[in-house]
Structures are given as structure tokens and as C-alpha cells.
Design a protein around this nucleic acid. Structure first.
Lengths: 341, 341
DNA sequence: TTGTACGCGTTATCAC
DNA sequence: GTGATAACGCGTACAA
């Protein structure tokens, strides 16, 4: 690989000039620029990213940490990631995927992170990843709010989880449903805590109690039940335990589909016997299902884009003030999986 | 941020010793190690990744280039990415997501890539990304074979596309289907060329011609028809043009679902009137569909893992010889979307 | 085992 | 507008 000195020598200019030609931080004369570029092409020279980073202290990359225990993305994750990538590339940033293995490694981080900031998806209570960001002084934005001790302020993007659960419950209760089962996300995620609390609150406000068997949490990846969570819970509660359930709220598309299969195997129908409401539902997947699934549009792509934008503000790439905690709109998309009883 | 000198001073050792404690490239006495680690914790010191990279010439990251024109992942991509990430993390490597915008930027790369190697998904003919890797001397592995001029040898992982198409055609023809429509992937991808050729060959060998309207290619992202490709083509050929079609081969899950919707709107049924076969079908999605969709299991996760393994060989992380071109097994998973006529 | 000088490739900061 | 030189933070020979 050719280096800057080689170019400087052949173009009969100094290193600094070559640097300026590429970085465009200072003007250069046309003549010199042409010469430098010509020699660079000839030598197949490009500035060394690492050396540049060492002095600018910018890696031009942001980290994207995928949540604990959800290694198999749902459409929500996919859309979210798309939003992040697109927005980041807009500012010249790349995205470094970051997976924290469930089994914590002995030496978590034997080196600093080669990133300028991070987007943390779906934090858990006392999320270790966030403590590390905090300690490492790495600017970060979470999707879902932070519940770590010692961390007071931090940027976040989220939907209004309380409003979401209230809307869903209201929607179902207005249609006569009282026995609503909630298949929540993994219980470690703060967003699932928010939603559970709001679910109970919404039910209580209408004078309805929530029995313990009406709320379930997705097991984590290590569990053998991970993939068939929706199926298992539905078979267990509706089939084996014969509990009365007229509506099921499913956290994501996979869970919902899994529930559909269980309902079929129980010789029940949707929405005739059971209504289904999906929280994180991708439009194209909801539509293709039979019946099509009523869901909440959480705008995952917008969540991703917004989180990057906040990060860019923190990094000083985007100027001006910015809201530390942004709420992205969400609304009900009515399809054919909920009926009135 | 504390640096290595600070630690060395406080621990009363030299820089070199601190370096050795962290890199473990040379043995150090217990006593010294303890002292260094203690001071490091106290100072919140971690080695600087960038500085380390500058001298080791390794970034410990691999690039993952997502294909042109398929910004919305299908389950195939998701599974593949999972395989890549998991396998890479096993070797201590991170994954840098790399999207090449459709609109080529004027200055494609004003800097070297901060990666040690790359996995290139679904290359196109004369894929520009591959030329860049080639020029930049970056080791890479493609998923699907390379069709670039000037590039003779290159590592790749793939399924046996010819065998796949022959198996599918045989499967359908054995059930009496002669009028098979193929909704292929984007025509730029080499894998779609392989499959198209094999499709025609398989049909011809049984004495069947393939009319032009029986093969279609997914438009690229910029097209407004991108999202509803399967729906549009089905409505057009079966509905508007009233062509005879008894079976449809869909490239991926989204296309298949989209086809299902069209068939429903045409008041036809699956598999009664039309049989459907999916090439890249995610199990959990195929199963949930009604009827469940017969598909090929391409083992995307295994494709991902294998591609990383080959890359690790190229990088010298994994010792020994290795096959340059690996074929991953694929087999038909029979479900309920194909019938005999 | 430990300490030291030097190299890695670039950018920033001065002079000119 | 351009040239020389000092950082940037770490790894690694080499000498001790």
C-alpha cells in the first residue's frame, strides 16, 4: 500500500499538502490538486483510515447493539436497522454491529471501542452494555428508556408505551373483551416493564383485574421455548388449563404467527373465537396473514433514524439544540383479527 | 482517557510491560500483572483500539456488504446475518455493515476500509464492490459466485443453484405441472442468472419450452413496484393476460406472500388452483402461512457461518488449507402449497 | 523479566 | 497556498 510520503515525493509536494487535497480542510490550488490526484491514482493511494482516526479521534462509525436474547430478528428489528443505516450513511457514518453474547465473556472489553457513539436497542434493567458505554464515555442513545442505577440523564427514542397499551386495551375492551392475555417481550427489557405496568393499569381503570396467567414474558434465547413461545403459551393457557381468553396481545410478528398456529391446532378461529392484536407488527407481514392482523404501527424505521439524529447532535455533527428524549408516533392499524363480542 | 504511559508511571513499570499485560503476547509476573491491572482499573484505562490497529494492521472487523437493491431484508438475509455475526464474534471479530447506495457516490472511497476482510452478499455481474475489494487488496468471500471480468479466482459460498432449480422443477413436473412461472430475484445478481439458466435447462430437458412471460425478475429498490412485485406480476400474468399458470416459484418469502394475496384477489386457491414453491423460505414464516408453503431450506445461517470461516482462513486466523468454494446443502421441505394435477 | 527508542500514517500548527 | 515538524497512542525490537 502506498503511503502519503510516496505520493508527496512523486508529486513534489509536502505531506501536509497531500493531506489537504484529500481532506479538503484547506484550499489547494487546482494545479497542485490535479498533480496529487494523478499520482494517487497511479499509486493506488487512499488515506489510511486508522491513522486518520488516531489523530482526529473519530472513527466515523457508530455501534448498534442488538438486544440481549433476541438473536432472531423480527421485522421490527429489520426495519429499525434499515432506518439506522440509512440515516447514518447520510452523515458519512458506518454501522458496527455489536452483539453482546449472553454468556458474558471473562474479559468483556480488552480494548476501547472503535466507535464514536452507539445506539442501544431495547435496554434491560441495569443493562451492562449501558454501564460500559457510560464508563467508556461513549455517547449513546437508547431505544426504550434506561433503568440503570447511577444513570440519571440519557438520550432515548421511544414510542409512548403507556399510550400504546391504553389504546390497545381500550380498543379491545370497547369490543367487549375482558379476558385479555398479554404475551409480552422478554421481561428484562425496560420496554416490557413499561408495557406490563401500563397494561395492568389500563385494565384496572376499567375495573378489571389481571390474573397472573394473563401476562407472559418471552423466554430468552437460551431457552428451548424461545422459538415457539406464542404457541406454547397459547396451548398451555387455552388448551391445557382451559382458561377463558377472548383476546391475545402479541408483542411481535413471530409471536403472533406462532399464536395463530396454536389457535388453529385448538380448532378455534380468529377472530371468531379469539381476537389478536400485534404490537410490533410489520405491515407487509400483517397483511399477508390470514386473517390480516390488526397491529400497532411503531414506525421502527423512524425510531432508527431519530436515534441516529440524536446521536449526531451529541457528536456535534449536527449543530444546535436537540430534545434528549424523543417520542415517535404510533397508531393502530385496523385489520381483520379483532372482533366484537 | 488514561493512556498507557499514565498506567506505566503509576504502576512503576514501563510501557512495554503494560502492553504485554494486556496483549498477553509475552509472559509477565503475577505480581506485576496484578499491579498493572489494579492501576488500570483505577484509571479506567483500556488500550486504544485505533492506535493498536495502526501498528498491528488489523482492525478486528469484517465488512458485510448487503446487496444492491434489497434494502428491505427478507428472512433469508436476517438468518444469514445472524450466522455471520455469531461466527465472527467467535473469532473476536466485529461486523461492519456496509451499504452501497444505489446512487453511486462521486468519491466512492476517500479513505481505506477499516476492515480486515469482507463478506459480500449476492454479487451482481461486474459488481463494483468486488472491484473495489480487489483493488484495495481486501480479502473477501462472496455468497454466490463472482462474475467480474479480470477476476479469475475468488472465494465463495453458495448453494448448488443448478441442483436447486432441477429439484424444484422435477418436484413440480412430477406432479403434473407444465406451466410454471418463475418469480426470480433481481436480474443483476449472479445467483439469479444461475437460477434462470438452470430453470430453463431443467424445463427443456423435459421437452418444455419456457415462454418469456414465465420468468420475471424483481425490480430494484428504486422502482415503485419493488414491494408488491409478486402481487403485480401475478395479477398481470394470471389476471390481465389470462395466461395459463399452474405453479409459481417465488424467490423469497415476501414475494411468496405477495403472490398469495394476488391469488386470493383473483378468487383462486392454493394449492387447489395454483401451487407455490418458495426458494429462500424461512421455516417459521413458511409454517405460519395458510396453507403452509413448500420451500427449499438454503441454510442461510450456515452460509453466513461458512463464509466467515473461509475469511478467517484467508486472514490467517484459522490455520491450514481450506476449500475456496464451498457448497452448502439445501433440501426441499415439503409443506402444503403444492398439489398434483 | 524490564526499559527504551523508534515506527505506524496521518493531521494540526506553525512559519513562510 | 505551501512546507517542515510535532503530536496521536500503542506495539516491538533490542539492549540491559
Amino acid at each position: 500500500m502506498a503511503k502519503i510520503d510516496d505520493v508527496a515525493r512523486l508529486a513534489k509536494v509536502s505531506k501536509g499538502t497531500v493531506s489537504n487535497v484529500f481532506s479538503q480542510k484547506r484550499p489547494t490550488s487546482n494545479e497542485v490538486r490535479e498533480r496529487v490526484m494523478s499520482v494517487s491514482r497511479q499509486l493506488n493511494y487512499v488515506p489510511n483510515h486508522t491513522a486518520r482516526s488516531l489523530v482526529t479521534k473519530k472513527t466515523m462509525a457508530i455501534g448498534l447493539t442488538i438486544p440481549h436474547g433476541s438473536f432472531f430478528f423480527s421485522a421490527f428489528h429489520t426495519q429499525f436497522i434499515n432506518g439506522v443505516i440509512l440515516e447514518a450513511s447520510y452523515y458519512g457514518y458506518r454501522v458496527l454491529l455489536d452483539i453482546i453474547p449472553l454468556q458474558q465473556v471473562k474479559t468483556p472489553f480488552l480494548t476501547s471501542y472503535p466507535i464514536d457513539g452507539a445506539v442501544v436497542m431495547r435496554p434491560t434493567t441495569n443493562d451492562e452494555r449501558i454501564n460500559l458505554m457510560h464508563m467508556g464515555q461513549i455517547p449513546f442513545v437508547t431505544v426504550g428508556h434506561v433503568m440503570n442505577e447511577n444513570i440519571e440523564h440519557s438520550s432515548s427514542v421511544d414510542n409512548d408505551n403507556q399510550q400504546i397499551m391504553f389504546s390497545i386495551c381500550e380498543y379491545l375492551m370497547d369490543r367487549g373483551h375482558k379476558d385479555i392475555m398479554f404475551l409480552n417481550a422478554n421481561e428484562l427489557m425496560t420496554v416490557s416493564i413499561d408495557r406490563r405496568d401500563s397494561f395492568i393499569k389500563a385494565m384496572n381503570e376499567r375495573g378489571l383485574d389481571v390474573a397472573e396467567h394473563m401476562i407472559h414474558h418471552k423466554p430468552d434465547l437460551s431457552s428451548s421455548e424461545y422459538l415457539d413461545y406464542g404457541y406454547e403459551e397459547t396451548m398451555n393457557i387455552l388448551g391445557k388449563q382451559k382458561k377463558k381468553v377472548t383476546a391475545i396481545i402479541a408483542d411481535d410478528d413471530r409471536t403472533a404467527f406462532s399464536v395463530l398456529n396454536a389457535i388453529k391446532d385448538l380448532n378455534l378461529s380468529v377472530p371468531g373465537d379469539i381476537s389478536i392484536f400485534v404490537i410490533c407488527g410489520d405491515h407487509s407481514m400483517m397483511v399477508q396473514s390470514n386473517p390480516s392482523l390488526t397491529s400497532m404501527d411503531l414506525q421502527p424505521s423512524e425510531l432508527g433514524a431519530q436515534s441516529v439524529r440524536i446521536l449526531m447532535h451529541q457528536l456535534g455533527v449536527l449543530p444546535g439544540d436537540f430534545a434528549e428524549n424523543v417520542i415517535v408516533e404510533s397508531k393502530i392499524i385496523e385489520r381483520n383479527s379483532c372482533s366484537t363480542i
